[in-house]
Simulated assay, not measured.
Amino acid sequence: MLEQINESIHLIDLNFLGHSQAIAAYLLRGEQEAALVEVGPASTVNTLLHALEQAGVSPSQLRHLLVTHIHLDHAGALGVLMQRLPEAVCYVHPIGAPHLADPSRLIASASRLYGELMDTLWGPVLPVPSERIRVVRDGERIEVAGRTLIALDTPGHARHHHAYLDEASGLLFAGDIAGVRMPHTTYVRPPTPPPELDLEAWQASLAKLRALPIRQLALTHFGVFADVTRHLDELEHRLLAWGEFTRQLVEQGLSDEQIITALQEYGNAEMQALGVEPTSYDLGAGYQLIALGYARYWRKVLITDKPNRFGNGC
């Protein structure tokens, strides 16, 4: 599915596992070339290429592939796409770049979380030729498809995370730093998978975004939203509130499974009270990974006796 955002930017619904509104890629079209922000997993490559064909974009025209971070739902298709797109180069955070050239550690880490579902969920994760990887630094201006995108180092969800601000339109391609939200809702869920969740860094990233002239948020999970300030405020509130909730469970010595169950009950009750369908969010940010991310974070904090400097009791 193609959805026009403005005169030269389209949202592509990658129809992940046959579900709409789970993972988006964003197509930027210029006069001579095209670019993508996010490419999704390798399991959705055919859907992506079909959408590009529908948009009238040939493989030789697609020359720039920007990913907000290297998690497989955002960047897993890069290796496969490099075999299909002869002119393309990819743009990635410096911390993520080595794991695109050699994805063995990335695959091993994901396999610990997904086990036998790895291939079904993500498809083949292939290395990206190093000569086709461009490392992007914080604040760098990238000229692609007739637009200028500003790279913004935004850790918290992952250390290797960039958001990209379209300078002309004020549209922010936010990756996961701005959370998960479904169309026609206001509810924002924090995606906090292990192993790199950092609440303090996430708060700093949100403060950085608030200082910028952002007019719309383009979320990978899922869609474009204009209520920027309200959205970011709600995300920060829930990020910290769920952090406090899970911290107490960790301190009580609950197991991972108990924490997952408790957070799911807590989150579902919250969503149902607001009239939001909980399962619509699960493909973008499921409770299992959210809970495991918080649990790992708090156990590390408690072991190292890191000072507690968060709001809302976190």
Score class of each variant (00 low, 15 high):
Ser60Val: 15
Gln61Thr: 05
Gln61Met: 12
Arg63His: 01
His64Tyr: 12
His64Phe: 08
His64Pro: 00
His64Trp: 05
Val67Thr: 02
Thr68Gln: 04
Ile70Thr: 13
Ile70Asn: 10
Ile70Pro: 10
Ala75Arg: 11
Gly76Asn: 11
Ala77Gln: 12
Leu78Arg: 11
Val80Gly: 01
Leu81Phe: 03
Leu81Cys: 10
Leu81Gly: 07
Met82His: 09
Gln83Ser: 11
Glu87Tyr: 00
Val89Trp: 02
Val89Cys: 03
Cys90Phe: 01
Cys90Arg: 01
Tyr91Ser: 03
Val92Asn: 03
His93Cys: 11
Pro94Met: 00
Ile95Pro: 02
Gly96Asp: 13
Ala97Asn: 12
Leu100Ala: 02
Leu100Trp: 09
Ala101Ile: 01
Ala101Pro: 00
Pro103Asn: 03
Ser104Glu: 12
Ser104Gly: 04
Ala108Phe: 09
Ala108Cys: 00
Ala108Pro: 04
Ala110Thr: 14
Ala110Tyr: 10
Ser111Arg: 14
Arg112Ser: 08
Arg112Cys: 01
Tyr114Phe: 15
Tyr114Leu: 04
Gly115Ser: 12
Gly115Tyr: 08
Gly115Val: 06
Met118Ala: 07
Asp119Lys: 09
Thr120Leu: 14
Leu121Asp: 12
Trp122Phe: 15
Leu126His: 07
Leu126Ala: 11
Val128Ile: 10
Pro129Ala: 05
Pro129Gln: 12
Glu131Asn: 13
Ile133Thr: 05
Arg134Met: 11
Arg134His: 15
Val135Lys: 09
Val135Arg: 14
Val135Pro: 06
Arg137Met: 12
Asp138Ala: 13
Asp138Lys: 02
Glu140Cys: 05
Glu140Trp: 10
Glu140Phe: 05
Glu140Gly: 05
Arg141Pro: 00
Ile142Met: 08
Ile142Lys: 01
Val144Leu: 13
Ala145Ser: 12
Arg147Ala: 01
Thr154Gly: 06
Gly156Ala: 07
His161Val: 08
Ala163Pro: 06
Ala163Arg: 06
Tyr164Met: 04
Leu165Pro: 04
Asp166Met: 02
Glu167Ala: 14
Ala168Pro: 01
Ala168Val: 00
Gly170Pro: 09
Gly170Ile: 02
Leu171Gly: 05
Ala174Met: 09
Ala174Glu: 07
Asp176Met: 09
Ile177Met: 13
Ile177Phe: 14
Gly179Phe: 14
Gly179Leu: 13
Gly179Thr: 13
Met182Glu: 11
His184Thr: 08
His184Leu: 11
His184Met: 06
His184Glu: 15
His184Gln: 14
Thr185Lys: 04
Thr185Gln: 11
Thr186Cys: 02
Val188His: 07
Val188Met: 10
Val188Ser: 02
Arg189Pro: 01
Arg189Leu: 13
Pro190Met: 10
Thr192Tyr: 05
Pro193Glu: 08
Pro193Trp: 07
Pro194Phe: 04
Pro195Phe: 03
Glu196His: 13
Leu199Ile: 00
Leu199Arg: 08
Leu199His: 08
Glu200Arg: 13
Trp202Ala: 09
Trp202Gln: 12
Gln203Gly: 14
Gln203Glu: 14
Ala204His: 13
Ser205Leu: 06
Ser205Pro: 10
Leu206Trp: 07
